[in-house]
Write a protein that binds this DNA or RNA. Sequence first.
DNA 1: TCTAAAATCATACTTTAGTATGACTAAAGA
DNA 2: TCTTTAGTCATACTAAAGTATGATTTTAGA
Lengths: 163, 163
Amino acid sequence: MLTVFLSKNKLIILYGASLALILFLLKWLEYRFVVISHSFEIYVGAIAVIFMALGIWLALKLAKPKINTVVVEKEVIIEKEIIVASGIGFVFNEKEIEKLGISKRELEVLQLMSEGFSNNEIAEKLFVSLNTIKTHSSKLFEKLDVKRRTQAIEKAKRLSLIA
Amino acid sequence: MLTVFLSKNKLIILYGASLALILFLLKWLEYRFVVISHSFEIYVGAIAVIFMALGIWLALKLAKPKINTVVVEKEVIIEKEIIVASGIGFVFNEKEIEKLGISKRELEVLQLMSEGFSNNEIAEKLFVSLNTIKTHSSKLFEKLDVKRRTQAIEKAKRLSLIA
DNA sequence: TCTAAAATCATACTTTAGTATGACTAAAGA
DNA sequence: TCTTTAGTCATACTAAAGTATGATTTTAGA
């Protein structure tokens, strides 16, 4: 019971502990700096920096962007190409994506590739390392059974995997 | 000139202004609270909260835009215009091709690039050397004002330079 | 709780891609 | 005829892209 609670709220507990630690640290800093004259600004600045960093960290940690793939299965009589050409909207070929076993992250990379971004630029955009993008693209090429990114783009567009 | 600068850096200026405002506010708060005894904690707490909020706001503002791939399914009625538009024939944007000064050979290379062929494969197909293809593609990138073949493909398709 | 898939990153390496520069030829115009 | 342009090719680079392999960490499911 307790262990379940612990594991389930691991993240929250971690945050609480972090906060407590920081508060303790701040209290200590307060007593250290308050005696030294003209250190008030430094103390306040430190707090500002620490909490801003904490805020940024929290936001980035908690606000994980997820791809909302809304599946609406309806009768589609007309072929994709015609729909695209008529500019009504783009229909992702989710069946094919699933069939090929392409993950969300891989799809993101594929999309950015098709927009002309380099691996480095994609890495920056997704806040991951270059190596990660290379790994993603390699797996992508395997799944798509292609050898190059240009081929991947061509095939992905043809199969309506990406816009 | 100045207005262009202002409009281009609107966001950055806004951030700067916000920061200045907050600093001003904090200074005021400092003088208000510092005289009142035992308000030190309140002041520090306020700073912590404000800067944490600022951090969260900043992170959310600057973080990666969520990719919401929403599948929109609409009832599509087949019409003559749509079928015609759907590609019985592709209309090349010859004006743009001429405007950019792209030669026939370069256009051939561009087309093959977009089909996913490597420089080597293109060279074989056109019965020329790899270096020739590299020269063509380099000139092509200059004329298209791009850095990579994937960008070239994206732009060329967007401008209907190729099918 | 245990596990498998997904995502991350690294190191080391090979292969393509792309740049810079210069040279040669053929064709088309002024 | 002279000049320009397109097309060809080479050498020598630098910069990306892609492969192989292994490791770690999340995340989601059974």
